[in-house]
Design a protein around this nucleic acid. Structure first.
Lengths: 333, 333
DNA sequence: CCACGACGCTAGTACGTGCTAGTGGCCTGG
DNA sequence: CCAGGCCACTAGCACGTACTAGCGTCGTGG
């Protein structure tokens, strides 16, 4: 019921609280921050808390950040390709867990040729996490801002953050098509947002799994749902004897299935297509899309725990994301 | 080519730059901030800039915010329902324009029962924009943080920010179905993310347009693509003689069309369905979905300009968002 | 020759909080 | 009765930048 003293135009500071409570400013800080190793009598504590509540005191976060050197902000730099359905759940859950630990997760989409300083210079986050690795310039910029905790660690060679499972999905996709007797497979991705390292990583995983199953190479084709490239791709696959398509995500799968239907290629008899993520569209599509689902909420929680430990300087040595890919069988395979 | 002096562990401050350039700290500030009304000789200016560049100086944003009282951050509070495809384009464009004006747009999804302080307390943004109106508690919290510029203005009665066109889409949807001879219309929305005020606003707009065309009332039904509620809705509509469905967005339209196909109701002969947003799924779906498109990029730019003017304290008196809804005719109508 | 203004720069304070060093008072053990 | 320690609290510095007041110098007009 913070009854703010809206009469005063100046914002309420700890000094105001101290004056009202009849103590020094330091005491106010001790009480409100529950400073360990500092004993405060019950009476004083209550007077301070009461005064703070009555005045509607909110600490100035800029001053806190300046004085303490910590901002309690965790920055997550997103890739510039669109965030998928499942990734949003991932982020939501990660944000929730970080919130419980007293951190705020701020997401940031890189702006290649921005005028302003990148967001990490503006927020001075305690740590920065990236879905993909950072460029040397970006690393230098972060270091210059005093940001020490950067992940993926620029010192190591980790092109993609492990906190999102990459290979489990594609492996399962390939295995599923294999079990349905499909031997000639192809990989499909969108061309529009420039193919990212995630596309490459998933394709690599699919290719490797196919190789280990003694299947012929799984080539990748980039399609655009707006022009006729999906039609071209489906025709080319059909001509080359491809009977199974591994799609980067459900949207790509939908574009492939859609093109096949219009051309007259039967799904799944002539061509089996499997998506990735189990987004809403997979259920709604006609035919419904077989896909691979992740427990993204769990993954997000895993990332958050990882992030908290890293941010607080006690990294878990052998941390692995809790991976669990589940096959969702529907009509497209 | 900021060659940072990585040898020093301490972060580079303006004092370091001043020492290297052989001037006072104040002069460094004048040069780097291009302070108006302060003349600096060309030689000094160059020495300072050179020193700053060589040391890799990055101003401490927390200290800047503390000293200046401004953070150059614009916070956009998003509703807790998922951000749609078109809205992402809107945000991207808004972010770009704000960036050019030297502001960073940070988006924030409200966390109803969060442990940490809301993001506006952590960032002390120069202004906060909300898609929906704020609760009195939130307003109090923002005011307590010294945030003066809050939109929608709590003083006025604007439930929904005008910067995103609300009524033009639904009106066009209804008109389109009307032109195709559909007289008994229904409105469809998802039940899952709790129906928001945006759902209500669009439904209201559709209902009003139908009323002005002398059509019977347009009732709303909430469906879930995961259970059988879409089937139930389609059956109920069919029984009630509904021949046209106005969908909240393309996803909802897809769910309706999907249910209709599975039941055996012909699209568009028995039931015409029109979506909203022209998201990728509308093209890919079979049948392709008729929909309504917005020039969301222009709207985003409009919002950004509005936000910049408001933030810098020169509000445009009669500002209106640049609305332009376009009908996209496809197979579902 | 001097008053005066403009130029170019510096010293120093304010911003609000975290936190260390220190300071009385009280209690206890010898 | 006193030394010593703990309790409860305060004074004051540090954080790094923005910005005002002021100061010396130089040129110029009277």
């Amino acid at each position: 019921m913070a009854v703010s003293e809206a009469t005063a135009k100046r914002r309420v500071t700890a000094t105001d609280v101290a004056a009202v409570a009849g103590v020094s400013r330091a005491t106010v800080g001790f009480v409100l921050n529950r400073t360990r190793g500092q004993t405060i009598s019950e009476g004083t504590r209550e007077r301070v808390l009461e005064a703070a509540l009555r005045l509607g005191y909110r600490p100035n976060s800029a001053a806190q950040a300046l004085a303490s050197g910590r901002s309690r902000i965790v920055l997550f730099v997103l890739p510039d390709w669109p965030v998928e359905y499942s990734f949003r759940i991932y982020l939501d859950e990660a944000s929730r867990v970080l919130d419980e630990a007293g951190y705020s997760l701020v997401t940031y989409t890189r702006r290649p040729h921005g005028e302003t300083r990148p967001l990490w210079e503006l927020l001075t986050p305690d740590s920065v996490f990236g879905f993909t690795s950072f460029s040397p310039d970006e690393i230098a910029s972060m270091r210059g801002c005093g940001i020490r905790r950067i992940f993926p660690d620029p010192a190591r060679q980790e092109p993609l953050d492990l906190s999102l499972a990459v290979s489990a999905g594609p492996r399962l996709q390939v295995e599923h098509l294999y079990e349905h007797g499909r031997r000639q497979l192809a990989y499909a991705a969108f061309a529009d947002p420039l193919p990212s390292s995630l596309v490459q990583a998933r394709h690599d995983a699919a290719r490797e799994r196919a190789h280990s199953l003694d299947l012929p190479p799984v080539d990748i084709r980039y399609i655009d749902y707006r022009d006729g490239s999906a039609d071209d791709a489906v025709r080319a696959w059909h001509g080359a004897g491809v009977t199974g398509v591994v799609a980067f995500n459900d949207d790509v799968a939908a574009a492939v299935v859609s093109a096949a239907i219009r051309i007259g290629i039967r799904i799944p008899d002539d061509l089996a297509v499997i998506g990735h993520d189990d987004s809403p569209i997979a259920t709604m599509f006609v035919p419904a899309l077989s896909t691979v689902r992740f427990d993204t909420a769990t993954l997000g929680r895993g990332f958050a725990e990882y992030a908290i430990n890293q941010t607080e300087g006690r990294p878990l040595p052998d941390w692995r994301p809790p991976v669990s890919a589940i096959l969702v069988r529907r009509e497209s395979t």
